[in-house]
């Protein structure tokens, strides 16, 4: 009888405890990126650009070279890095407050220029770090600390579908929306992240993976209930699919 190791911590992840709340799916997204980096063998030439938000400390968890960009400006920093060193694999990791709100101009123009960067966009329909305020991606009727009676479209509009919006542009090579709330979605999410990195490595244009994620603390539910909420409420509004694939 012998034991075979079939699941362990990726080599490019530090063995430390994260500062994330229990059940926060940032940790799953981090692990998927580390697994893809390991599988592609690009740890020594991958550069990440961290956002402002809960994941601002991502450089403590994934063993790569990291920049820390001003709020929302990660695509601009990644553009500079990639243009100066086209041999590197450059990606940003941004939340919905960072990318879809203050950083909307940067992401739209980086995508429209077809910059050879990859964007990992975490959409959990709320501002996590600052205390659960409404984000551009907050669902209608969803209660947040700034919409205590639910998001009202007359006052604050509708949830922005970033993947659909950017896929109308001509330049992006790969755009997909995935989720990391249950194992069946996590396996597909890893494939999408790998395709995004390969789109960049094969010089086929801008790539973005939108990841539907949870925020149990600010949603005020248990981690398991949060994963069910994503399946029941978020996926109907933000359908999971590949919107653009390289030809």
């Amino acid at each position: 009888m012998k034991e075979v190791l079939i699941a362990e911590r990726p080599k490019s992840m530090y063995k430390v405890s994260t500062h994330y709340c229990p059940g926060c799916t940032h940790g799953i997204a981090h692990r998927l990126i580390a697994e893809v980096v390991d599988e592609l063998g690009i740890q020594d030439r991958a550069v990440g650009v961290a956002p402002v938000g809960c994941s601002v400390l991502i450089y403590n968890y994934i063993d790569l070279d990291w920049y820390e960009a001003a709020h929302g400006r990660a695509p601009a920093v990644a553009t500079a890095c990639k243009r100066a060193r086209p041999d590197l694999t450059v990606f940003t990791y941004q939340g919905d407050g960072d990318l879809a709100s203050i950083g909307m101009a940067e992401i739209v123009h980086a995508a429209n220029r077809g910059e050879r960067i990859s964007v990992i966009f975490i959409n959990n329909a709320i501002y996590g770090m600052t205390g659960g305020q409404m984000a551009p991606t907050t669902l209608l009727s969803q209660r947040t600390s700034t919409t205590p009676y639910g998001r009202d479209p007359k006052a604050s509009g509708y949830p922005i579908r970033v993947a659909e919006m950017l896929s109308t542009l001509a330049a992006p090579g790969y755009i997909a929306r995935v989720s990391v709330v249950k194992p069946k979605y996590i396996i597909k999410a890893k494939e999408a992240i790998k395709k995004a990195f390969l789109t960049q490595i094969e010089d086929k244009g801008f790539s973005l993976v939108e990841i539907l994620s949870t925020c149990p603390t600010n949603w005020g539910v248990s981690p398991v209930a949060a994963t069910n909420w994503v399946e029941e409420q978020m996926i109907p509004v933000f359908p999971l699919k590949e919107f653009k694939v390289p030809e």
């Binding site: 009888m1 012998k2 034991e3 075979v4 190791l5 079939i6 699941a7 362990e8 911590r9 990726p10 992840m13 405890s17 994260t18 994330y20 059940g23 926060c24 799916t25 940032h26 940790g27 799953i28 692990r31 249950k182 194992p183 996590i186 396996i187």
Partner: peptide, 22 residues
């Protein structure tokens, strides 16, 4: 049954799974 679902879903990468071959 060594399906790795727990390790796949663990947000804190705390889980290691071994398959036992008879």
């Amino acid at each position: 049954i060594a399906c790795k679902m727990c390790a796949t879903t663990c947000p804190d990468v705390a889980i290691t799974v071994y398959r036992i071959d008879e």
